[in-house]
Design a protein around this nucleic acid. Structure first.
Length: 660
RNA sequence: GCCUGGGUAGCUCAGUCGGUAGAGCAGCGCAUUCGUAAUGCGCAGGUCAAGGGUUCGAAUCCCUUCCCAGGCUCCA
């Protein structure tokens, strides 16, 4: 009667006095756990440590060094941020402040026309540290809706959240802010700061402290650009100073491999402001990498049964009226050019033009699947603030292909596409793939339910067949058909969405595409869109970051640099480089006008895969000294013919399908 | 497009209170002739993003435009 029992994660049962809280349980288990405990997880539900446990519950104590623990820390740190801001700017409105990956944010509106600047972060952070030093308890209370509205009457964003929840029109994230549709829960700290929150929170602010405010940014209230723009402060928070330092170090590492920085350092390309934003020029060193990528792509497509097509950069607007894109995407297109015989646009996509190729004559079922491929350059007027290096630009080239097939061919075609895509991505060094399968948005789609179901199944089966882990994104498909997006994980664990395979029931309809079947009847083909790199520019950026600029030999702009020890070795060095070049290797020399160490250092900094040093012994014996990138232990006296053969083989192997 | 912060030599950056432009690296020249991550000396390099304004005087203060960064929104 006066006891209760709970089950712990290890399966054991504990008998506790009636009214024991999560904190009490942690204390019974051990002093260390009591000190570390942040919140309790009771029957999968997170509660404050101060909440009494219920009989028969499964209880786990959440500690900082866990995903859940960090999320709690981050959420509580966000509250401290809001408390600090209201202390520094009395009358500040605070909106929402969730935990996010690696940290947290909180959105604010300051009184008057005041805005945070970067310099304010240090002041806010100092105030937060003071609040943490005060070790203020987080005290939970519950109120009725009316009481809640009264309590937050000076906080318009909180009022809007409470009203929304009360009227049942709230978004999911708002439910995190209150407790239920009829109960408003709050957490109070010292000094009169109260925040709306479902909780739970750490017991007191003293549990926090391993955090750093990162930046201030604008963010629309409710994510709606027609509503007021608030100011968002981002921070990162961790369970220990060591974990915080590790995260900051990781950010520095990511910055070092930033493709914009590497592209400049390695003299690959630039974005001259004379061109305008989001438009790149490729320098010789970037150009040769791009050529290798394109050559490889073309050769694989040729093997894969694709037919190459070329379409213009400009088109009469009628084409996009037919495709139906003009009404949807006009804002994302460059403005029209009015000419004598009509209105023209820069092309933002290749698909409608490929449809015209399909339509140019009668098609037989014997031609299907018809796979059209083009490295097609398109122009999209991306909004100024969205541009980001090579990842988001205004002029770019898609490795774009459109496949026309019958319904019966759909299944096999998708399966072979998936295999093709991953095989090519592997050749570029990516090995870790995941996928998203986007399904029909019931509010916005064209095509019959049967075809949606059939094609969605085909996509799903293909993913399952390859054992590719995937998540279903319900309702995330474009209106014209379901799709698979493929993400790759890079060398430092970031994921990038690259390839896409999309079913399209819209274009064949709008362009009235037909083929004649074996039954001598006309049929509508299904169209698949497929981009593998997505955009060559973006893929190039991802590659650079993945390899931190240390591109594999087949892609490296300069593959071998030959250095004579003294200038009387330069002639032999030239012979070596010439021999390599005659075998198709990009090899160059740097004459011996500087000490060898300096020239080696430069070549290393330029991330050249092979540095070849030749001196007296080499001239005599027809050998070279090979200093391979990443190695600190050069090979001396390698026969030139052996070296040439090895490098040529390495370069040739790049793109060999992995099953060879 | 919106919010905040920026734009100084090819790159990275300094430039105080408004007094007229600096460093390192890279480049070029000369010397140095060297066996695996920096040889020395010298030279050159600038419409301080662009335009306008205030001022005796503007890299510096104000306005407009362009470009960049981080976010938000958007992304066929």
């Amino acid at each position: 009667m006066s006891e209760l029992s709970v089950q712990l994660p290890d399966g054991t049962t504990r008998t506790l006095a009636q009214g024991t809280t999560g904190a009490g349980l942690a204390a019974e288990i051990g002093r260390r756990l009591a000190k570390d405990a942040l919140v309790a997880q009771v029957n999968e539900q997170l509660t404050d440590l101060s909440t009494p446990l219920v009989d028969g519950a499964h209880v786990a104590i959440v500690t900082p060094a866990s995903d859940l623990g960090r999320e709690i820390l981050r959420h509580s740190t966000a509250h401290v941020l809001a408390q600090a801001v209201t202390r520094l700017w009395p009358g500040a409105h605070y909106a929402i402040g969730p935990a996010i990956e690696n940290g947290f944010y909180y959105d604010f509106e300051l009184p008057g026309d005041v805005h945070f600047t970067d310099d304010d972060l240090a002041v806010i952070e100092a105030t937060m540290r003071a609040i943490i030093a005060e070790d203020q308890p987080f005290t939970r209370s519950e109120y009725s809706i009316d009481e809640g509205l009264e309590l937050f009457k000076d906080q318009p964003f909180k009022v809007e959240i409470i009203r929304g929840v009360a009227s049942g029109t709230a978004a999911d994230e708002d439910l995190d802010e209150v407790s239920s549709a009829s109960v408003v829960s709050t957490y109070a700290n010292a000094g009169g700061f109260v925040d709306l929150c479902r909780g739970p929170h750490v017991p007191s602010t003293g549990r926090l402290g391993h955090f750093k405010l990162m930046r201030v940014a604008g963010a629309y209230w409710r994510g709606d650009e027609n509503r007021p723009q608030l100011q968002r402060i981002y921070g990162t928070a961790w369970e220990s100073d060591a974990a915080l330092a590790a995260h900051l170090h990781q950010l520095e590492e990511a910055e070092k491999r930033d493709h914009r920085r590497l592209a400049t350092e390695m003299d690959l390309l630039s974005f001259p402001s004379e061109l305008g934003g989001g438009l790149a020029v490729w320098h010789p060193r970037g150009g040769i990498i791009r050529k290798e990528m394109e050559d490889y792509s073309r050769s694989r497509h040729l093997e894969g049964g694709y037919q190459f097509v070329v379409t213009p950069h400009l088109t009469n607007k009628r084409l996009y009226e037919t495709s139906g894109h003009l009404s949807f995407y006009k804002d994302g297109m460059y403005p029209p050019m009015e000419l004598d015989n009509g209105t023209y646009y820069m092309k933002p996509m290749n698909c409608p033009m490929h449809c015209l190729i399909f339509k140019s004559r009668a098609r037989s079922y014997r031609e299907l699947p018809l796979r059209l491929f083009e490295l097609g350059t398109v122009y999209r007027y991306e909004r100024a603030g969205t541009l980001h290096g090579l990842m988001r630009i205004r002029g770019f080239t898609q490795d774009d292909s459109h496949i026309y097939c019958t319904e019966d061919q759909l299944q096999d075609e998708i399966a072979s596409l998936l295999e093709f895509v991953m095989s090519v991505l592997r050749a570029f060094g990516f090995t870790d793939f995941t996928a998203n399968l986007s399904t029909k948005d019931p509010k916005k789609y064209v095509g019959s339910d049967e075809i949606w179901e059939k094609s969605t199944d085909a996509l799903r089966l293909a993913l399952e067949k390859f054992g590719l882990p995937f998540q279903i994104k319900k309702g995330d498909a474009a209106f014209y058909g379901p799709k698979i997006d493929i993400d790759v994980r890079d060398a430092i664990g970031r994921t990038w969405q690259l390839s896409t395979i999309q079913c399209d029931f819209n274009h064949p309809e709008r362009f009235d595409l037909e083929y004649v079947g074996a039954d001598n009847q006309r049929h509508r083909p299904i169209m698949l869109h497929r981009a593998l790199f997505g955009s060559i520019e973006r893929f190039f950026g991802v590659l650079l970051e993945h390899y931190a600029g240390n591109l594999p030999t087949w892609l490296a702009p300069e593959q071998v640099r030959v250095l004579g020890v003294r200038d009387d070795h330069d002639d032999y060095a030239r012979d070596v480089a010439g021999e390599l070049r005659s075998m198709g290797v990009r090899a160059f020399i740097e004459e011996a006008t500087e000490p060898l160490g300096a020239r080696i250092r430069r070549a290393k900094l330029e991330k050249i895969p092979y540095i070849v040093v030749v001196g007296d012994e080499d001239v005599r014996a027809g050998t070279v000294g090979v200093n391979k990138r990443g190695s600190n232990d050069p090979d001396r006296a390698v026969a030139l013919s052996d070296f040439v053969r090895a490098v040529v083989a390495e370069i040739a192997a790049h793109g060999a399908p992995e099953d060879e």
